[in-house]
Amino acid sequence: MTTVVTLFGVALVVFVVIRLAPGDPIAMMLPPGADAEDMARLRAAYGLDRSVPEQFLIWLGGVVRGDFGTSISLRQDVGALVLDRLPATLELALLALAIAVAIGTTLAVIGTLRRQRPAESAVDLWNGMTLSIPDFLWGLIFILLFGVVVPLFPVSGRISPALDPDYATGFLLVESLLRLDLRVTGDLLHHMALPALALALPLSAVIAQVLKQSLKEVMHLDYVTLARAKGYSEIAVLFREALRNAVLPTLTLVGVQFTFLIGGTVIVEKLFSYGGLGNLAIDAVINRDLPLIQGIVLLFAVLFIATNLIVDLAYAALNPRLRHG
């Protein structure tokens, strides 16, 4: 229920904000010198001749039926356009999440095993820096370092045009893996590496910091000491006994941070000319493409809410105290 209210709020805010926008999208569509009659006809075709509340209700009615309207600048169905771009963004965000979890967990484990030694201070210092620098700047740094100074990675696009496969879904990475089309997989990863890393670094620092803190707390507990006495090595104790308990407090925070990461895809995609939702969104704003903006923003809100939902479910699944039966 609260989800529905939140989504309604998002829809309403976007709708109101963009109706306040100056600049006439219809005028931008037509060649200069089009007569007033043409403009009026087109305006009526997009429903822009009605009052704002009316427009909102019409649009909302459409959304409920799965009809998000027609993009003004691209003259295509908004739903189809957005769904076409969604997989690219989702794959990028999830790859970034995987990288962040891998880096963050590794750092947290190193910092815990080597606590109160120079290695822990090094981990803390690195975390402090990666946490302060946002994804946009990381993206720029990577473009400069690995795109220009040592050109190891491509800095724009999602896939080399020569390889662009004709797949059934937009989830190119997943589908190429399933088809064992490893050349395509490799090329996709090659293109995604820098933007994904740029998105991942700030999140990895959050994970490293919070996970290390809770690991250090757990490592003092009696059952961990008991496990040591059972003959496990320190690293086995950490993975078998401590990690699962320490993950719980980290999980909630990672959920919130992941929504920030999804939000970050907008500018990082632009930076790397990656053909996802974010790039589409910025173009839509610049073209005053009202229906498209609405559709994209609503989709982002759905992604955010879905993330929070998944985190809640994962938390319940991992915490035996919340499990029933």
């Binding site: 009696d222 059952y223 008991l226 699962r244 308990n245 915490n319 105290r321």
Partner: peptide, 8 residues
């Protein structure tokens, strides 16, 4: 109370 791992 604290000597058993709550997650296992």
């Amino acid at each position: 109370l604290t000597a058993l791992n709550p997650c296992r």
